[in-house]
Computed example of a mutant assay.
Amino acid sequence: MKQIPAGTELARPFMPAKDFDLSRKFYETLGFEKLLDEEVAIFRAGSGGFILQRAYQKDWAENFMMQLMVDDLDAWWAHVDGLDLPGRFNVRPPRAPAMQPWGLRIAYVFDPSGVLWHIGQRRDGAIQD
């Protein structure tokens, strides 16, 4: 089996935006670093990222999920909870961190297009986290 070239590859999903300007402001408010702001907006989220695009289909957006694994979920929750995202962006209220049946502690955040973010606490010694 031939190996693919390895180096600085980075996978970034294309995320939907019902209202591109509102979604862009939402991610700026969350504190993601904006790397590009043109026809698309590229954001860095830790060591990964995503491309916010000017495309939207309700069924796709409301079934699109992102995972952000963090070292300190309580600090992230304090940050998110203090932003008043429902009041500022008319989104569903974030859900506080809770232990899930699959073994991760997760908080949930919804963006203006309906995309669901799972913000999870990394587990000590779990390499996939």
Score class of each variant (00 low, 15 high):
Met1Glu: 08
Met1Thr: 04
Gln3Arg: 05
Ala6Ser: 11
Gly7Thr: 00
Gly7Arg: 09
Leu10Lys: 06
Leu10Gln: 02
Ala11Asp: 07
Ala11Tyr: 04
Arg12Tyr: 04
Pro13Val: 02
Phe14Arg: 05
Met15Ala: 04
Pro16Ser: 03
Pro16Lys: 04
Pro16Trp: 09
Pro16Ile: 05
Phe20Thr: 00
Phe20Met: 02
Phe20Cys: 02
Asp21His: 11
Asp21Cys: 05
Asp21Ser: 07
Leu22Ile: 06
Leu22Ser: 08
Phe26Met: 04
Phe26Asp: 02
Phe26Gly: 03
Phe26Lys: 05
Tyr27Phe: 05
Thr29Pro: 07
Leu30Glu: 02
Glu33Val: 11
Glu33Thr: 15
Lys34Trp: 09
Asp37Phe: 05
Glu39Asp: 14
Val40Cys: 03
Val40Leu: 01
Val40Pro: 00
Ile42His: 09
Ile42Gln: 10
Phe43His: 07
Phe43Lys: 08
Arg44Ser: 10
Arg44Met: 09
Ser47Gln: 13
Ser47Asp: 11
Ser47Val: 10
Gly48Asn: 13
Gly49Thr: 12
Phe50Cys: 06
Leu52Asn: 05
Leu52Lys: 06
Gln53Met: 12
Gln53Pro: 02
Arg54Asp: 07
Ala55Ile: 11
Gln57Asp: 11
Gln57Val: 12
Asp59Arg: 15
Asp59His: 13
Asp59Met: 14
Trp60Thr: 15
Trp60Gln: 11
Trp60Phe: 12
Glu62Ile: 10
Asn63Trp: 03
Phe64Thr: 09
Met65Gln: 10
Gln67Ile: 00
Gln67Phe: 00
Met69Thr: 15
Met69Trp: 12
Val70Ala: 01
Val70Asn: 02
Asp71Leu: 03
Asp72His: 12
Leu73Ile: 10
Ala75Cys: 04
Trp77Asn: 07
Trp77Asp: 07
Ala78Trp: 00
His79Phe: 06
Leu83Trp: 00
Asp84Asn: 14
Asp84Thr: 15
Leu85Ala: 07
Pro86Cys: 04
Pro86Leu: 05
Gly87Met: 08
Arg88Met: 06
Phe89Lys: 11
Val91Lys: 06
Arg92Val: 15
Arg92Ser: 15
Pro93Gly: 14
Pro94Asp: 14
Pro94Lys: 06
Pro94Met: 08
Arg95Gly: 01
Arg95Ala: 05
Pro97Glu: 11
Pro97Phe: 14
Pro97Leu: 08
Pro97Ile: 07
Gly103Pro: 08
Gly103Asn: 13
Leu104Arg: 10
Leu104Phe: 05
Arg105Glu: 04
Ile106Pro: 01
Ile106Asn: 05
Ala107Pro: 02
Ala107Lys: 00
Tyr108Glu: 10
Val109Pro: 01
Asp111Asn: 03
Asp111Trp: 11
Pro112Trp: 01
Ser113Gly: 02
Val115Tyr: 06
Leu116Met: 09
His118Lys: 13
Ile119Pro: 04
Ile119Trp: 03
Ile119Ser: 07
Ile119Gln: 03
Gly120Trp: 14
Gln121Cys: 01
Asp124Glu: 13
Ala126Ser: 11
Ala126Lys: 12
Ala126Asn: 13
Ile127Phe: 12
Asp129His: 14
